[in-house]
Every structure is written in structure tokens, then in C-alpha cells.
């Protein structure tokens, strides 16, 4: 899923100052799963925002709505009625949702309420960790199903740097496992260590953001 986290509330307050009425919009998909932008978070953030604005001496009406998915036009369309009554939108969906709303309702400012950070998995309750960097050139077949692009702090392709701690954690963050240590362990368990001995040449990054904004076209699916 796409994960995101709340922006600091003072940052939101400074965005909303000067507006009369704002629609706070949640998304019931990825950001709900990561407890940042679903209905529960809308219901918590709305009173917090009202109180924060009040303590700043500002009066802004905060309306609330959560839709199934902010990244699909059919669901976004359901906001058309509420949008009429506000002069700004605060979306706590991922960056895709924020942009879908601002594209559909281009006459209004649509502010991001969260910072979108990663493609991640819920590793444990309350813990989400990155799994994919959308690099456009998947290597998981050669790295035993563990991604060094997303999970190594240096995106190394040829094994661990010298910074693997004695407990197998990463030198950059003691709470993050050295993914190359994990890859090694899995390769060893499968009896396929020799696969890691091959030198992997420089990667082609052009099928990701590095190649310019991604555009995927499927003629067979076009109207």
C-alpha cells in the first residue's frame, strides 16, 4: 500500500487560514490502512483542526467527508455537491488523491494534509516498512524476494556495505534490518549463495521517475 503520515497541524493551520469553509476529505483505501487518512482520522483531525484554528484566533468551518478512493474519478465525482459549499479542500489521501481532487475541482485550492512517504507493508500492528521503490526494473527475482533498492539505505546492488551491525541491523538506522544480510540469509537457506557472487552491472533507472514522468499506455484498453 501507499503510506502517508500527518503533516504537523500548525502547517495545516497556516494553509487553511484565510478560508471560510474547508472540506476535509479522507480516503478509505491505502491511507486508511496506514491510519493516516481514513474516516477515523478525518473524525480525529477535524476537531483538532477546529481547536487549533480557534487557539490561533481564526474561524474556519471544517466539513468532513470520506470517500472510497480519491484516486478514481467515479468516487471523486461524489464530492461535487459538497465542493459547492466550501472555498478550499484539505485532502488526507496520498499525493495521487490530492492531485485527482485538484484536477477535478481545479477552481479550488486542494491542500495536502499528509506527507506521502513510501510503498510499504504493515509489518506489525502499528509498524509499516518500505518494500518497493517503483524503480521500474524489478530485481526481486535475483535478490531472493527482498528489495535492495527500497530497503538498502544506499540501494546497493552487489551485497552489503561495511555498515551491517553485529546484530544484522543497518548502520544508518539501528531499527532497520540490513536487507543484504537478509538476502544473504535467505540465499544460504536455499543453498544458492553462488547467485550472490555474480557482479551486477549498473542498473537502468529510465523506466521510473528518473526517465521523466511515467506514462503507461495500453492501446488494447483504450476506448
Amino acid at each position: 500500500m501507499i503510506i502517508a503520515e500527518w503533516k504537523p497541524i500548525p502547517e495545516l493551520v497556516s494553509m487553511l487560514k484565510g478560508h471560510k469553509s474547508v472540506l476535509l476529505v479522507g480516503c478509505a483505501t491505502c491511507v486508511a490502512e496506514c491510519a493516516a487518512g481514513g474516516e477515523r482520522e478525518v473524525e480525529t483531525l477535524a476537531p483538532l483542526l477546529r481547536m487549533a484554528l480557534k487557539t490561533e484566533g481564526v474561524s474556519v468551518e471544517i466539513k468532513r467527508k470520506t470517500i472510497e478512493r480519491q484516486c478514481e474519478w467515479e468516487f471523486v465525482e461524489a464530492l461535487a455537491g459538497e465542493i459547492e459549499e466550501v472555498d478550499a479542500v484539505l485532502s488526507i489521501a496520498c499525493g495521487i488523491g490530492v492531485q485527482a481532487l485538484s484536477e477535478r475541482f481545479a477552481h479550488l485550492p486542494v491542500y495536502p494534509g499528509v506527507n506521502t512517504t513510501s510503498l510499504a507493508i504493515r509489518e506489525q500492528p502499528g509498524l509499516w516498512t518500505a518494500r518497493c521503490a517503483a524503480c521500474g526494473d524489478c530485481v526481486l527475482g535475483e535478490t531472493f524476494g527482498l528489495c535492495p533498492v527500497a530497503r538498502c539505505a544506499k540501494s546497493l546492488m552487489n551485497g552489503p556495505c561495511g555498515g551491517t551491525r553485529h546484530n544484522g541491523m543497518c548502520e544508518v538506522d539501528e531499527n532497520v534490518e540490513c536487507v543484504w544480510n537478509l538476502i544473504y540469509e535467505r540465499a544460504k537457506a536455499r543453498g544458492e549463495l553462488q547467485k550472490l557472487y555474480e557482479v551486477r552491472r549498473a542498473k537502468n533507472w529510465s523506466n521510473s521517475a528518473h526517465g521523466g514522468p511515467k506514462r503507461m499506455l495500453r492501446e488494447d484498453l483504450r476506448p
Partner: peptide, 11 residues
């Protein structure tokens, strides 16, 4: 106690 309830009480 839900976070939203607690915030609404204060609100």
C-alpha cells in the same frame, strides 16, 4: 476511548 471521541469532547 477512541481518539475522535476524546477530541470531540474537548472540541
Amino acid at each position: 476511548v477512541e481518539p475522535s471521541h476524546l477530541m470531540k469532547i474537548l472540541e
